[in-house]
């Protein structure tokens, strides 16, 4: 399982690098699709069918919206010719990446090896979850019963994001009440 996942993530990294370096924005979006749909296969292998269903639909909608945006404006990549403060930029990036790698190496120590998760909290969820919520799908039980606050916060964030998009994209103030 670990080898298979490593190969899949390797493909995703290649797709991501191509997406960031493509000359044409449309091919960059298609290459981002490699990353998204590769993630779906990873979720299926990780025994998470709920996540796979959500991710495959969301990735498709994202691609549709992004392709619409790109086709409606320019699809040319801007020229990457920047010389000012080049050394400063490189030094800053190296410092940030080094700091992140240090934190990652530090934080990965207490993790269990892959596939050997110690279930402290989830022990209760998997054993008692069905009796106490009555839902056969444990993810839904956790989502709407044990962790209801998270779901409520998520719905609020989604509402706020939709409101933000509508507000940003309104070109002229609505004077006529014809909504």
């Amino acid at each position: 399982m670990e080898t298979l996942l490593s190969i899949l993530i390797g493909f995703m990294i290649i797709g991501a690098l191509y997406a960031l370096h493509a000359k044409d924005l449309l091919s960059a979006l298609i290459a981002q699709g490699i990353v998204g749909y590769g993630l779906v296969i990873c979720f299926l292998n990780l025994r998470a069918p709920d996540l796979a269903i959500v991710q495959i639909v969301v990735e498709t909608i994202t691609l549709v919206v992004m392709v619409a945006v790109v086709l409606n404006s320019s699809r040319k990549e801007v020229k990457e010719s920047w010389n000012r403060n080049k050394i400063l930029n490189i030094v800053t990036s190296v410092i940030i990446v080094g700091f992140l790698v240090y934190i990652f190496a530090f934080m990965i120590q207490p993790l269990q090896p892959f596939g050997d998760h110690s279930m402290r909290m989830a022990q209760y969820y998997t054993q008692m979850g069905a009796e106490s919520t009555g839902a056969a799908n444990l993810v839904t039980g956790v989502l709407f019963d044990f962790r209801g606050y998270d779901t409520l916060g998520e719905a609020t964030i989604l509402f706020t994001a939709a409101l933000g998009v509508v507000t940003i994209l309104r070109s002229k103030p609505k004077k006529e009440s014809a909504s």
């Binding site: 909608i61 009555g134 839902a135 039980g141 709407f144 989604l158 509508v166």
Partner: peptide
């Protein structure tokens, strides 16, 4: 079964569908 969970599911589904459609 499962008490209020199906009702939550229905209304969260409505909320998500309407929000994504509003953005689009």
């Amino acid at each position: 079964s499962a008490g209020v969970i199906p009702i939550y599911n229905i209304f969260i589904g409505m909320e998500v569908a309407a929000a994504l459609l509003t953005i689009f």
